[in-house]
Design a protein around this nucleic acid. Structure first.
Lengths: 197, 197
DNA sequence: GTCTATAAAAGGATAGAC
DNA sequence: GTCTATCCTTTTATAGAC
């Protein structure tokens, strides 16, 4: 006999995270209630607290998971070859990773304000690590004479801002494919940092 | 005899806008209550409704005012001279305007989700006008052979994202002055769009 | 593991006195 | 133009039944 309530074989946790991710991205953390998340999952609000101590922890978990995955992806990229090659790999990785996860990216950039101070510090630390990875590539290229960059710190921030901006307008099925977008952006990044040749 | 309550010579309206602007930028529209705004101004919540029909109208008014001012500033810039000159003027204007108004910029980019559909359309229209202004400069430069741009639409979005990113990290009194930042960014924009010479 | 019920607080907005 | 008081809704989170 079918059960209309009760345990659901342990899949509720992931479904809560998915629903929260989607709703937070669409409407913003502060504008989404625990009841709305529960409703999207198909449970009552009280059931959510079997999976998260509170709403804040749910937000932090989503953001931390996203940053961890981003850094793990970067770490898994080969760091051999010329600075130009590594920069091109970074551009491709950044665009691909971010276009594949529009909701996570949106939350990671928009909901920093809604993190508790301790949680904010954790996420900011991870973000710094990511920026430092790009900056080390730019510094290496500058030192080797492959790039011409007046200020590597500013170039780092400018490149990341430029690339991340893709997520604000890109839609699958639009005028350009993700690969074509990557080509165009690589062309601009390459010129902006003065890649030789 | 000093009055501890009552009319305040018509300055409450601007003060409400200032307080709302600051609080919305710091904590986000949805996370700020009318009571908090009233408290920052030094009035009771009910008094706010002498100045705005509701919270949504207050947000829209702030965003619309910001976009109107941005477009008016662009319109007041001379549109003569070479495409390169106009692009350089645009870069300087964009950075200066945005660094002078960090709270307005933050709201204009972060709170689009919290606008009612009709209000959203208005703000989006104004944003499109601004983007079109830059794109027309890039198209002119490309047509005249001054720039080398594979895709002017993407270049427009990339340049605006890059420049607006400055507001996320720039702080007065930091390592670089606003003028120095502008110099560095102009260098990167110039290269990215392949300015001749 | 989920439900129902509820506590306790905070939210937007309005009415009427001054 | 502002205050006090209040309405009504919604919120997060918890308690205890099943």
């Amino acid at each position: 006999m079918a059960r209309t309530q009760g345990s659901h074989a342990g899949i509720t946790g992931p479904r809560i995270r998915e629903a929260a991710l989607k709703l937070f991205a669409e409407r913003g953390f502060a504008a989404v209630s625990m009841r709305q998340i529960a409703s999207a999952v198909g449970v009552q609000a009280g059931a959510l607290y079997n999976y998260t101590p509170d709403k804040q922890a749910l937000l932090f978990s989503l953001m931390k998971g996203h940053m961890d995955e981003l850094l793990a992806t970067v770490a898994a990229t080969p760091q051999t070859g010329s600075a130009q090659q590594r920069l091109q790999d970074f551009v491709r990785l950044h665009i691909t990773f971010h276009l594949d996860r529009p909701d996570e990216v949106f939350i990671a950039y928009m909901e920093l304000r809604n993190l508790d101070p301790e949680n904010f510090d954790v996420i900011e630390g991870l973000r710094s690590q990511y920026e430092n990875h790009l900056e080390s590539i730019l510094q290496a290229g500058e030192a080797e004479g492959d790039f011409t960059i007046p200020d590597t710190k500013l170039a780092t921030l400018a490149v990341i801002a430029m690339l991340t901006g893709v997520t604000t307008w890109y839609r699958p099925g639009g005028r350009l494919s993700a690969d074509e977008v990557t080509q165009v952006y690589w062309d601009m990044v390459r010129k902006a940092v003065g890649v030789r040749g």
